[in-house]
């Protein structure tokens, strides 16, 4: 096949930017010492078993799960409402929904600082109304809010695109066979939208569990998620070996989570998931 030639640049790209870095991370995680003098060891992984690191992992996973569940609860109805609209209105609504994503991710998150801060917009209104200002920033709630805000479109879009493809005659035939609105939802719409839900969960959970920007900005300097831990090891502590080990642990963790999620995807064909 001559067309194979066309894939060579991509193969190079994968090699340089994905395979080599991954191999390096893997190498670093199982070694210690300087580059000239690498020794094989699993001490980096053993180090992670310390309760303070496990706790960071636990908090990250918990927060990622919370934001995934919340985006799902918030996003599904949104997707459903948009999918039910007339095609012309639908596109406008999706457009409005996606528009904030054109803005830089950092800027969007910074915007929340101005909104939530001690002298921020919300507290200004609260004080104006005669109440005491609240501590809105630098806590779990602020980080969770930031994640939901940033990742909601990633939940809505895949679910929407699955819902919009459900043939209306399926809904009509369910109605014809005696199903009321609620039964149509639980027995037809929900099961048929599972591929979209799986994709949505994947697309929210993965960035949520590894984020370090949202937690740094909205959680404050002391806020530690696994992403921050890795960042810290590489940039401040300078322990690339331990940082790589944590990265590998997190990668394995994500892979396991995704494998479990995909088990729920009973529909083999037309699945938009990663598996």
């Amino acid at each position: 096949m001559k067309l194979k030639v066309l894939s060579y640049p991509y193969v190079v790209w994968i090699a340089v930017f994905i395979v080599v870095p991954l191999a390096l991370v893997l190498l670093y995680s199982f070694t210690d010492g300087d580059l000239e003098d690498l020794n094989f060891t699993i001490s980096n992984f053993r180090k992670f078993l310390d309760s303070k690191y496990l706790n960071v992992l636990w908090i990250s996973v918990k927060l990622a799960l919370e934001s995934t569940v919340l985006t799902l609860i918030l996003g599904y109805p949104v997707a459903l409402i948009i999918a039910k609209e007339k095609p012309s209105k639908r596109n406008t609504m999706i457009f409005l929904f996606v528009m904030p994503m054109w803005m830089n991710f950092l800027l969007r998150t910074y915007a929340w600082l101005t909104l939530l801060g001690k002298n921020g917009v919300i507290n200004f209104i609260i004080e104006f109304l005669g109440f005491k200002p609240l501590d809105l920033l630098y806590n779990d709630g602020a980080v969770l809010l930031g994640m939901i805000y940033n990742f909601l479109p990633f939940m809505v879009l895949p679910i929407y695109s699955v819902l919009v493809k459900i043939d209306n005659s399926l809904i009509e035939s369910a109605e014809d066979l005696g199903a009321n609105k609620f039964q149509i939802f639980t027995r037809i719409i929900l099961p048929l939208s599972i591929p979209g839900i799986i994709t949505g969960i994947t697309m929210v959970f993965m960035p949520a569990v590894s984020t370090f920007v949202i937690s740094r900005l909205l959680g404050g300097g002391q806020y530690m998620l696994i992403g921050n831990l890795i960042e810290q090891q590489f940039l401040w502590v300078g322990d690339w070996h331990f940082g790589s080990a944590i990265s590998i642990i997190m990668m394995v963790f994500i892979l396991i989570t995704m494998a479990i999620t995909s088990k729920f995807d009973t529909q083999k064909e037309g699945s938009g998931g990663l598996w």
Binding site: S169, L170, E172, A174, E175, D176, A179, I188, Q267
Partner: peptide, 20 residues
């Protein structure tokens, strides 16, 4: 009367069988 309360059933043009 809505369709689900009618003693009438329909065979649709494209069958509309539930794929799941």
């Amino acid at each position: 009367v809505p369709p689900y309360k009618r003693q009438i059933n329909t065979v649709f043009q494209k069958y509309a069988l539930f794929p799941h």
